[in-house]
Amino acid sequence: MSKYLKSLTIALTASCLAAPVMAEKLGLGRAALPAEIAAWDWDINAKGDGLPVGSGDALDGEEIFAEKCAACHGDFAEGIDNWPKLAGGADTLDHEDPLKTVGSYWPHLTTAYDYIKRSMPYGNAGTLSDDEVYAIVAYILYSNDLIEDDYVLSDENFMDFEMPNADGFIVDDRAEAEYAIWSGEPCMTDCKDSVAITMRALVLDVTPELDTNAGATEASASAAPEAAPEPEAPAIDMELAAAGEKVFKKCKSCHQVGEKAKNRSGPVLNGVVGAAAGSVEGFKYSKALRDAAQDGLIWSEAELTAFLAKPKAYLKGTKMSFAGLRKEADQAAVIEYLKTFE
């Protein structure tokens, strides 16, 4: 094919590939109602547009935080296990392992309000009142030693607050800082005198073991002993169970119950009362719990009560990051509630 013909073909192909052009509106969709926009349009930008009227202080925030946030983020916003740490890390950003928290890293306080209001608590998103969010944000600031505990944060003074790392960001400058040095004809031969291995992945050894029976689920359940013989089905105290349903809100971000329940960060709890420990199919238990299951642990009411009171003390190494139910009445109520799920 001559050069001329080839370019003609390309030109023709290109015209056939043109993107759709829409000269006029198609009249698709319908007008969004104000109530619909209000129901979804919650975002708050860095200028504070969208901040609702309200207020809260760290003292109130501490209580809300303990109930709704501390299971993951810790009582002092210090973060449990791999969950995000919200406090600390001041002046660490240029260190080897910077600790990036709301206090040490986030440039805008509005981001905290926006995110907590729309996406928290984890597993129960969008359920906090505007005042509760102000109180939680105040508590996080307090945990970062940025305000006193009685400082009342509100829509009126929110934008006055300057975050410690507000000036710590620059807009992407890779094009100026990098592209010029990483371009052009690269070296093809004799590019360096010698090559030595300086680090090996096998030394660190952090790669997950691959299951050769691919697709097979973890066989943790097989190690669990048979469930104890069904005890006489005790009558359920429905009033106590109803109280337990309220207590269970603290458990809901990790545990599900009922017909459609699925394993989350905690196992499904249907039928847990009286069942053999570690027996929910498909859930990956901690080694501590698998060991206890192997030793024949049955979740009797007494064992469950002890576990729920102080999970980490009862079972060292448990994955359950929950601090525990301090009140005996709460322990009993939640167990009664769990009994209602077979």
Binding site: D43, N45, L93, Y105, P107, T111
Partner: peptide, 15 residues
């Protein structure tokens, strides 16, 4: 204005 949401400030920023 950009929102400067969590995903574009506390995460997905390069220190």
């Amino acid at each position: 204005e950009p929102v400067e949401s969590r995903e574009e400030t506390s995460k997905y920023t390069d220190t």
